[in-house]
Amino acid sequence: MEIVYETERLYLCVFEDAHLESSKQFWGDEEVMTLCAGPASHEVLHKVIEGYRKCHNVHGLSVYAVKEKETNEIIGAAGFNTSGSLIEVELIYHFSKNSWGKGYATEAANACLEVAKNHGDVQLVTASASPENEGSLKILEKVGFRFKEMRYFDDTEQEEPYFEYVI
Rank of each mutant, 00 (worst) to 15 (best):
M1E: 08
I3S: 09
V4E: 05
T7P: 05
Y11S: 02
L12S: 07
L12E: 05
V14G: 02
V14K: 12
F15Y: 09
E16Q: 14
E16L: 12
D17R: 15
D17L: 11
A18D: 11
A18R: 15
S22W: 06
Q25T: 00
Q25K: 15
Q25H: 07
Q25P: 00
W27H: 01
W27L: 12
G28A: 07
D29V: 00
E30A: 10
E30Q: 06
E31S: 01
E31V: 10
M33E: 00
M33G: 01
C36R: 09
S41G: 14
S41Q: 14
L45Y: 04
H46N: 14
K47Y: 14
V48D: 02
V48W: 11
V48Y: 13
I49F: 06
G51K: 14
K54E: 08
K54A: 09
N57V: 12
H59P: 00
G60V: 08
L61N: 08
S62K: 12
A65Y: 03
A65S: 14
V66S: 02
K67D: 00
K69H: 04
I74T: 03
I74K: 05
I74C: 06
I75D: 01
I75H: 03
G76F: 09
A78G: 10
F80W: 02
F80N: 01
T82M: 10
T82Q: 08
G84K: 14
L86G: 01
I87A: 13
I87S: 09
E88Q: 15
V89T: 01
I92Q: 00
F95H: 02
N98V: 00
W100S: 06
G101S: 04
A105T: 04
T106K: 15
E107R: 09
L113N: 02
E114Q: 15
V115L: 08
A116N: 11
A116V: 06
H119Y: 12
H119W: 11
V122H: 09
Q123W: 13
T126P: 08
A127Y: 10
A129P: 13
E134T: 14
E134S: 14
L137H: 07
E141G: 07
E141T: 13
G144W: 06
F145C: 11
R146G: 05
R146S: 11
E149Q: 15
M150I: 04
M150W: 13
R151A: 08
Y152T: 05
F153I: 03
D154R: 15
D154I: 10
D155Q: 14
Y162L: 08
E164M: 15
Y165T: 05
V166N: 15
V166R: 15
